[in-house]
Lab assay of single mutants.
Amino acid sequence: MPSETPQAEVGPTGCPHRSGPHSAKGSLEKGSPEDKEAKEPLWIRPDAPSRCTWQLGRPASESPHHHTAPAKSPKILPDILKKIGDTPMVRINKIGKKFGLKCELLAKCEFFNAGGSVKDRISLRMIEDAERDGTLKPGDTIIEPTSGNTGIGLALAAAVRGYRCIIVMPEKMSSEKVDVLRALGAEIVRTPTNARFDSPESHVGVAWRLKNEIPNSHILDQYRNASNPLAHYDTTADEILQQCDGKLDMLVASVGTGGTITGIARKLKEKCPGCRIIGVDPEGSILAEPEELNQTEQTTYEVEGIGYDFIPTVLDRTVVDKWFKSNDEEAFTFARMLIAQEGLLCGGSAGSTVAVAVKAAQELQEGQRCVVILPDSVRNYMTKFLSDRWMLQKGFLKEEDLTEKKPWWWHLRVQELGLSAPLTVLPTITCGHTIEILREKGFDQAPVVDEAGVILGMVTLGNMLSSLLAGKVQPSDQVGKVIYKQFKQIRLTDTLGRLSHILEMDHFALVV
Score class of each variant (00 low, 15 high):
2 P>K: 12
5 T>W: 07
8 A>I: 10
10 V>D: 05
10 V>A: 13
12 P>I: 05
13 T>R: 02
14 G>I: 11
14 G>P: 11
18 R>Y: 15
19 S>E: 10
20 G>F: 10
23 S>R: 10
25 K>T: 08
27 S>E: 13
28 L>Y: 11
28 L>W: 11
30 K>S: 03
31 G>K: 12
31 G>N: 12
32 S>Y: 10
32 S>H: 10
33 P>W: 07
35 D>A: 14
36 K>A: 09
37 E>N: 11
37 E>P: 11
44 I>A: 11
44 I>S: 11
44 I>R: 12
44 I>D: 10
45 R>V: 07
45 R>H: 12
46 P>F: 03
47 D>I: 04
55 Q>M: 11
57 G>P: 08
60 A>V: 11
61 S>P: 12
63 S>E: 08
65 H>D: 04
65 H>A: 00
65 H>I: 04
66 H>W: 09
67 H>E: 10
72 K>E: 11
75 K>I: 04
77 L>C: 08
78 P>T: 11
79 D>W: 05
81 L>E: 10
82 K>W: 08
82 K>L: 02
82 K>Y: 10
83 K>Q: 13
84 I>Y: 09
88 P>F: 03
89 M>N: 00
92 I>K: 05
92 I>H: 05
94 K>T: 12
96 G>D: 11
96 G>S: 10
98 K>F: 07
99 F>H: 10
102 K>I: 08
104 E>F: 03
106 L>M: 14
109 C>N: 06
109 C>W: 05
110 E>C: 01
110 E>M: 04
112 F>V: 04
114 A>M: 05
117 S>G: 04
122 I>L: 05
126 M>F: 04
130 A>N: 05
132 R>C: 14
132 R>H: 11
133 D>N: 13
137 K>R: 13
138 P>C: 09
139 G>C: 09
139 G>Y: 07
144 E>D: 06
146 T>I: 04
146 T>W: 01
152 I>M: 06
154 L>M: 05
154 L>G: 01
155 A>W: 02
156 L>Y: 02
158 A>R: 01
158 A>M: 02
158 A>F: 01
161 R>V: 09
163 Y>Q: 01
163 Y>K: 02
165 C>H: 00
165 C>F: 01
165 C>P: 00
167 I>Y: 07
169 M>N: 02
169 M>P: 02
170 P>V: 03
170 P>I: 00
171 E>K: 09
172 K>L: 01
172 K>G: 01
174 S>D: 01
176 E>R: 02
177 K>T: 00
178 V>P: 06
178 V>M: 08
180 V>T: 10
182 R>Y: 09
183 A>W: 01
184 L>I: 14
186 A>H: 00
186 A>I: 03
186 A>E: 05
186 A>Y: 00
188 I>E: 04
189 V>Y: 08
190 R>Y: 06
190 R>D: 01
190 R>I: 01
192 P>V: 07
193 T>W: 07
196 R>K: 14
197 F>H: 08
199 S>Y: 05
201 E>H: 09
201 E>M: 05
203 H>M: 07
206 V>T: 09
207 A>V: 02
207 A>G: 04
208 W>I: 12
211 K>L: 09
211 K>D: 04
211 K>Y: 06
212 N>K: 13
214 I>N: 05
215 P>D: 15
215 P>M: 07
216 N>K: 09
219 I>N: 06
221 D>P: 03
221 D>R: 01
221 D>Q: 04
224 R>T: 11
227 S>E: 10
230 L>S: 08
231 A>I: 10
231 A>E: 02
235 T>M: 09
238 D>F: 10
239 E>R: 07
244 C>R: 05
244 C>T: 05
247 K>I: 13
249 D>Q: 05
253 A>R: 03
253 A>F: 06
254 S>A: 04
257 T>F: 00
258 G>A: 01
259 G>I: 00
260 T>Y: 00
263 G>R: 00
265 A>M: 07
266 R>D: 06
269 K>A: 08
269 K>T: 07
271 K>W: 06
273 P>A: 05
273 P>T: 04
274 G>M: 10
276 R>D: 03
